[in-house]
Design a protein around this nucleic acid. Structure first.
Length: 489
RNA sequence: GGGCUGGUAGCUCAGUGGUAGAGCAGGGGCCUUUUAAGCCCAGGGUCGUGGGUUCGAGUCCCACCCGGCCCA
């Protein structure tokens, strides 16, 4: 171990403790209360003269004045002041506290509770022991650890010193547990399907590839769970869901991490309108659970999940915001002509569907602050969704938006195996033509559909994006404990 | 991928081509009501990496590495 000066000093203190016969990393501790529990009933406990044993990390500077010292220790539930008098604690441990213990060390203290003359709840330490010596020093005590790269590379340190980071991950856990309870109560069965897949599907994205040595077979990390969950609907489960990690081999930015968490659920004998109601109910429930209200504050905006969400046809929204009525231009050339005629600043895309998506992303998405369902997408963008009756160029699909961010995607599932095969063939054509995000032919999935899948509504919700919204975090790396970073060196 | 921007002590940051700095933290000393404790003293550096220009580079130039913001 190569140590800097501060680490070397701490190591010397550790060795001094060992020389005195003290184990700096003892196997057991004996706390009687969490700090939070003590603070909750501090005056009652003082009145009853209760003695407690507390454990925690020494935070901030120790304030040592000859024969009296102060410090704070922190556990997950809270932080409390230590009153350390040489007379109460004894010369030996008072000296150790002064000379061998440091900020960030984890200690155990025992004694009665009292308030100091400023009224601060304190434990008057009569016994002290060390539970773990910290060899690394803390960051600066006022500014703390603020460098983003340092925070992410040493997330454990970020969590020690930045309480709001812990709060974000508590919010995330609450979102997931609320979602699970919501779906369980509605009769959905939680399932687990393969992460290693021989054919990747269910979304338009590039996969990570790996290899099974024994089977001499390439496998893909899943980009979605969709096709497996629908196989289960064929199998007769009428409501299934899975919450798990998907992997997409694409860039990293403030909305994307190569691995991210999705909830997908499928309900037999339901359609995309049912899934809209499910999203509305789910979001209300999460908002109340997480924020205590259907109204939440995000980046200075108030977002209200109370009312039903507007359902806005995609084509209409694009026409309203850009002036281009995509239903009038059925091929890329005429659509592009309409775009250039209006001198719109939009990137040229290789297909009609992608051009429509580009129009949407540029002109509509940035305006979607309040919860909104965009409905009825072009079939070209939706190879797994059922066509609209009487309007076969569009499908029964919606995407859920809030704060200009896509939260979810849902459709009435395509259950016609003949149409599905045609759609896959179109995708394969695109893939061969160079679209590396086009979907793959999945013969086994067609085979499953050939046994008959009931009319089904399906929905996917990105947990990371949802957490960004409810924790009011503008960057996905703030809602992922260990986001992807390049290796150093 | 493009533009802008950053990387200097453990941390937060200054540093305008001429002897590497401050605050906090840490070390030594004094101190029994502190909470950004206080006072005195001394220490701490591969200036992201590698080249180049220059009498002289943390500073200017080039390349690369690792971040951030914006755009695609």
């Amino acid at each position: 171990m190569e140590l800097n000066e501060l680490q070397a000093q701490r190591l010397a203190k550790l060795e001094r403790l060992r020389a005195d016969g003290i184990d700096p990393y003892p196997p057991r501790s004996e706390r009687t209360h969490t700090i939070g529990a003590v603070l909750n009933d501090i005056d009652g406990m003082i009145e009853r003269g209760e003695r407690v044993t507390l454990t925690g990390r020494i935070m901030g500077a120790r304030r040592i004045m000859g024969k009296l010292a102060f410090a704070h220790i922190k556990d997950e539930s809270g932080s409390i002041q230590l009153w350390i008098s040489k007379a109460d604690l004894g010369d030996e441990w008072f000296g150790r506290f002064r000379d061998q213990l440091d900020s960030f060390d984890i200690v155990q203290v025992e004694g009665p509770l009292r308030r100091t003359k400023t009224g601060e709840p304190s434990i008057f330490v009569e016994k002290m022991s060390i539970l773990a010596k910290a060899l690394n020093p803390p960051p600066e005590k006022w500014h703390g650890l603020s460098d983003t790269e340092a925070r992410l590379r040493e997330r454990y340190l970020d969590l020690i010193v930045n309480d709001e980071v812990k709060q974000t991950f508590r919010t995330r856990a609450k979102i997931v547990s609320t979602m699970r309870r919501f779906l369980d109560q509605r009769g959905f069965l939680e399932v687990e399907t393969p992460i290693l897949q021989p054919i990747y599907g269910g979304a338009s994205a590039r996969p990570f590839t790996t290899h099974h040595n024994q089977l001499h077979q390439d496998l893909y990390l899943r980009i979605a769970v969709e096709l497996y969950l629908k196989r289960l609907i064929v199998g007769g489960f009428e409501g299934v869901y899975e919450i798990g990690r998907d992997f997409r081999n694409e860039g990293v930015d403030r909305y994307h991490n190569p691995e991210f968490t999705m909830m997908e659920c499928y309900q037999a004998y339901a359609d995309y309108r049912d899934m809209m109601r499910l999203v509305e109910d789910l979001m209300r429930e999460i908002a109340i659970e997480v924020a205590g209200s259907t109204k939440i504050s995000v980046q200075g905006h108030e977002i209200d999940f109370g009312p039903d969400w507007p359902r806005v046809p995609l084509a209409q929204a694009i026409a309203d915001k850009s002036g281009v009525d995509i239903t009038k231009y059925s091929d890329l050339e005429s659509l592009w002509a309409a775009i250039t005629e209006r001198k719109l600043r939009v990137e040229r895309k290789p297909s009609w569907g992608k051009q429509v998506d580009e129009l949407f992303s540029t002109f509509v998405e940035p305006t979607l602050i309040q919860p909104t369902f965009m409905v009825d997408y072009p079939v070209a963008l939706s190879p797994l969704a059922k066509r609209k009756v009487g309007d076969p160029d569009f499908v029964e699909r919606f995407e859920a938006f809030a704060m200009c961010s896509e939260l979810g995607n849902a459709f009435t599932e395509l259950n016609d195996p003949i149409d599905q095969e045609q759609r896959f063939l179109e995708q394969v054509k695109d893939f061969v033509a160079g679209d590396d995000e086009a979907q793959q032919m999945d013969r086994d999935y067609i085979n499953a559909l050939m046994y008959g899948m009931p009319p089904t509504g399906g929905l996917g919700i990105g947990i990371d994006r949802l957490t960004m919204l409810f924790a009011d975090q503008p960057n996905i790396r703030e809602v992922i404990l260990f986001p992807h970073l390049r290796q150093r060196q």
